[in-house]
Design a protein around this nucleic acid. Structure first.
Lengths: 287, 287
DNA sequence: CCTTCTCTGCAAATTATTTTCTTTATCCGT
DNA sequence: ACGGATAAAGAAAATAATTTGCAGAGAAGG
């Protein structure tokens, strides 16, 4: 558990002095990670022992343990609160995007619903046919990636970003199949319609979307993805990265469930590539 | 600059005692971040002053500065050396994938060629028409994403994962256009062919690929992506995540270069979505 | 108004880190 | 091979940081 999560929980119960220490952590992380206990105490206007006690309360062994944990928290999370990047310099832009992406991964990891993911993996592994739906650019990429990942495991899967096709496919699907759909906003009403249709036909549905959203409500299994979004309209959403990672997790779990079949399929695919290319089999599976 | 990068540079020049300290950092990171200078010295079989000197040599102010930097490095980088994940439990798999992804982002950030990126962004921003090429699943996703990101900025762009189409498009392109292609392996010979064709027709080309590879050699501008790959064939490549992030960086820089145009285009796109959906404009640009 | 509890700082004790100084080992030119 | 220079590394001392123990202040509750 990281420091800031604990801090969140304990917040109400902190004494005035301790709150002042907490404020410094939140407002001046840079100072806090680099400060000695004496400097930190001075800045918070408390005595060093109070800082030690504060650390203990947060579940740390000692001040140095606290420092290490503090430094190790993907403090990145804090930056969401900070204003947008300083400049348009490539270095700053790169730094900002990498940070946001790492942050998104961190938040994803913290909020993963493993039970839902496992359920989804079970269903996918057993499906006779998988339909992957997603529209609007980002989600269509996710649907495509699902196909890209899962066909390699020997699963039967098709992806579609076309609403009309999705409806027809939902109508054609059978109870042994699975429909999996992605919606970043959770407000893709056409996807809701397809899910509803599937439900009537007893076809199981999995949604990768915001929890509590219409899309989530229409699916049998929801793998929730709840991340805050940046507000710079020029900035592509780091949420995409989180979705791709989530998808990797799901695909990996599916892979373990269908392992023998997957190994054989992968071998055939790889062989095909090697023969077709230049015989160097160190290359990736698919470019 | 992070500790491990410096360590890499200094490696050859370290004395025996210092090498022993370095070994501990590399082999037992967990111990190292939590140890006091005395414990670390004892484990390395050196005296505490030697540890202090070691820290200074690595560019740190003091041992505590060293500790903080050590703790803050996405130490994740180290895990590449470690064996594959412990189990098939969802929690472990998730942890492993998130770690690998963060690691990939970290390595990407460290190795970014900002000059090349800037050149690429310049070219893209000025292009009359952009052709995005990529095949084989992963790279076709990247080509699609390029389109998904850049059309929003008001740029004219089409993506293709079809080799024959790519050749025809390369032949149809004019010198004021730009061809941008992705290849994870750098060995996509069809892409090399398309680039070569483009070069003959004086159409500028940009490659997102491994540096030193055939694809890189055939392009005018190469934005290098050089990352080690995991070796678990069931594991999708975290390199994809790095590519997506790289693409975000490029797209952001392009956005700044075409800002007025982009703002107008984005407004129109957003308006379209709001009207078409339920009038809630807090939703993402494209699902 | 007293008791009791919590919060907090002070000073002492402990522990950690750095500095200084010295020894040892190594390298190089004669 | 021999001295001298230089670098490496430890011992001990000095300094700084951290924790502990204790006691006072103040609030809450009877």
């Amino acid at each position: 558990m990281d420091i800031f999560a604990t801090l969140q929980e304990e917040k109400g119960r902190l004494s005035p002095s301790e709150s002042r220490i907490a404020d410094i952590l939140l407002n001046d992380f840079e100072f806090a990670v680099n400060a000695s206990i004496i400097e930190l105490a001075a800045k918070a206007d408390v005595s060093p022992p109070t800082v030690t006690r504060f650390c203990r309360r947060l579940g740390c062994e000692s001040f140095s343990d606290f420092k290490v944990r503090l430094a190790r928290t993907p403090y990145i999370g804090m930056r969401y609160l900070k204003p947008e990047p300083k400049s348009q310099e490539p270095g700053d832009v790169a730094q900002d995007i990498i940070t946001k992406a790492q942050n998104a991964l961190f938040l994803l990891h913290r909020s993963l619903d493993l039970a839902a993911i496992e359920q989804a993996a079970d269903r996918l592994a057993q499906a006779e046919m998988i339909y992957a739906f997603g529209s609007g650019g980002n989600s269509s990429m996710i649907a495509g990636e699902l196909q890209n990942r899962l066909f390699r495991l020997g699963l039967r899967i098709t992806a579609s970003s076309d609403h009309s096709m999705q409806l027809m496919m939902a109508a054609a699907a059978r109870p042994a199949d699975v429909i999996i759909g992605s919606s970043f906003s959770g407000r893709n009403t056409e996807l809701v319609r397809a899910f509803t249709l599937a439900r009537e036909a007893q076809v199981p549905t999995i949604a990768l979307t915001q929890s509590g959203s219409p899309v989530a409500g229409a699916a049998d299994i929801t793998v929730p993805v709840d991340l805050p979004e940046g507000n710079n309209i020029y900035r592509p959403t780091s949420t995409r990265i989180a979705y791709v990672a989530l998808l990797d997790i799901v695909a990996s779990l599916v892979a373990y469930r269908v392992q023998p079949q997957a190994t054989a399929t992968l071998r055939r695919i790889k062989q095909q590539l090697v023969v077709h290319r230049d015989g160097d089999d160190r290359q990736l599976l698919g470019d």
